[in-house]
Amino acid sequence: MRPTHAPADHPSIKPGKTGILIANLGTPAGYDYWSMRRYLSEFLSDRRVIDIARWKWQPLLQGIILTKRPFSSGKNYKLIWNEEANESPLMTITKSQTKALADLAQQEWGDQVVVDFCMRYGNPSTDDVLDRMVKAGCRRIVFLPLYPQYAGPTSATANDQLFRSLMKQTWQPSVRTCDPYFDRPDYIKALADSVRRTLGDRKPSKLVASYHGMPRRYLMQGDPYHCQCQKTSRLLKEELGWEDGIIDTTFQSVFGREEWLRPYTVEHVAELARQGHGDIAVISPAFAADCIETLEEINGEIRESFEEAGGHGFTYIPCLNDDPSHIRVMLEVIRENIHGWVA
C-alpha cells in the first residue's frame, strides 16, 4: 500500500506485521562426509561453543577433527535419519512444531502474524529467514530460541546470530527475545505428563534427567544453565509427587579433555546398574525436540552403558516435540512477549 499523503510515485509498502521466529540448534543437510564437515565446521567454530583462541583451535579443528569426525558423526546420523523426507529428525520435528504453532497463532491473531523457524547452524539460516520475514512486511519480531534453560552455547549464540542478521537489514524490525522457560508451571506439567504417558502407573527406581553438558568453568564464569537444570529437575519431581532422591540430574555429550558439568550421564547410568537399579527411565528436559543426542546417544551409547553394567530395564522418555501441551507452552511464551504489538 502507498503511505497516506505520500506522492503518487512513492513505492508501495507492505502493511506492518509481527513475525514469530523460533530457533533450534541446527542439522546437517545429509550424513555424507562433506555435509557433515560443513555442519561441524560451522558449529565447532562458534566461539560460544568452543572459546579456545582461534590460532590454537582452528588448525586442530580444520585438520585432525574435521578429517575424522564427519565419518563417525555421519554414521550416527544415518542410524536415525528420516529417509522418506531426506532430513534429520530434528528438522522434521521443528517443521511440525512450526506448523502447529502457526495454526494456533492464526487462530489467535489472524493475518497480523507470520510464523517461521530458523537454525543456528545449517539451513534454513537465521539470515535467510529474517530477511524473508522482513520482505513479508514484518516490522516486529518475537524471537524464541527453543532451549528451556538458558546457556551461552545455546540461547545466547542464537540471539547473537539474530543480532548479526539484523545488522544486514537496511530497515531493521523491532525485536523481542524471549526468556528461558525452564520453571514455567505449564512446561513442568507438560514434562510430568510425558513421564506419566510413557511409564503409565510404573515408577522406575530412578528417573535420570539428562541435560546437554558444557564445561564446568562456564558455570564458574556465571552461566546460569547448571542452576536452571537443577531447578527443572526439582520442579518435575514435585509435580510428579515423587519422593526426594528418585530423580538424578546428569549431563551428557562431553567433548574434549577439560572438566564438564557432572555427573556424566553415560557413567552415572552404569553406576546405577552396579548399585542394583535394574529399572531406570531417562528424560531429556533440555531438548525441545528429539535429535542426535537423544535418539542416538541416549538410546544408543547411554543405554548400552547401563546394560553392559548389568541393568536390564531402560526406558527413554521422548522429548515434548510437537505435543499439543508443548505447543501451548510456546504460544503462552509468545503471547507474553507479543503484548502491545498485535490486537
Results as ranks from 00 to 15, higher is better:
Pro3Ala: 14
His5Glu: 09
Asp9Leu: 06
Ser12Gly: 04
Ile13Asn: 00
Ile13Asp: 05
Lys17Val: 06
Gly19Gln: 01
Gly19Ile: 09
Ala23Arg: 03
Asn24Thr: 03
Leu25Tyr: 00
Thr27Leu: 02
Leu40Ser: 06
Ser41Thr: 09
Leu44Cys: 07
Ile50Gln: 10
Ala53Leu: 11
Gln58Trp: 12
Gln58Arg: 12
Leu61Trp: 05
Gln62Lys: 14
Leu66Gln: 01
Thr67Gln: 13
Arg69Ile: 07
Phe71Ser: 13
Asn76Met: 13
Leu79Val: 04
Ala85Asp: 14
Ala85Asn: 15
Met91Tyr: 12
Ala100Arg: 11
Ala100Thr: 07
Leu101Glu: 05
Leu101Ser: 04
Trp109His: 07
Gly110Gln: 01
Val114Lys: 11
Val115Arg: 10
Phe143Trp: 09
Tyr147His: 03
Thr154Cys: 04
Ala156Ile: 06
Thr157Val: 12
Leu162Phe: 13
Leu162Pro: 08
Arg164His: 14
Leu166Lys: 15
Met167Ala: 14
Lys168Gly: 02
Gln169Phe: 13
Thr170Arg: 15
Ser174Asn: 11
Val175Asn: 04
Asp183Ile: 02
Lys189Ser: 09
Leu191Ser: 11
Leu199Asp: 10
Gly200Thr: 10
Asp201Glu: 13
Arg202Thr: 07
Cys229Pro: 00
Leu235Asn: 01
Leu236Tyr: 02
Gly241Tyr: 14
Trp242Asp: 12
Ile247Gly: 00
Asp248Phe: 02
Thr249Glu: 03
Gln252Pro: 10
Val254Ile: 13
Ala270His: 01
Val282Pro: 00
Cys291Asn: 08
Ile292Lys: 03
Glu293Gly: 07
Ile298Cys: 04
His312Gln: 11
Phe314Leu: 08
Phe314His: 07
Thr315Met: 13
Pro318Cys: 06
Asp322Gly: 00
Asp323Gly: 11
Arg328Pro: 03
Val329Glu: 09
Met330His: 07
Glu336Ser: 15
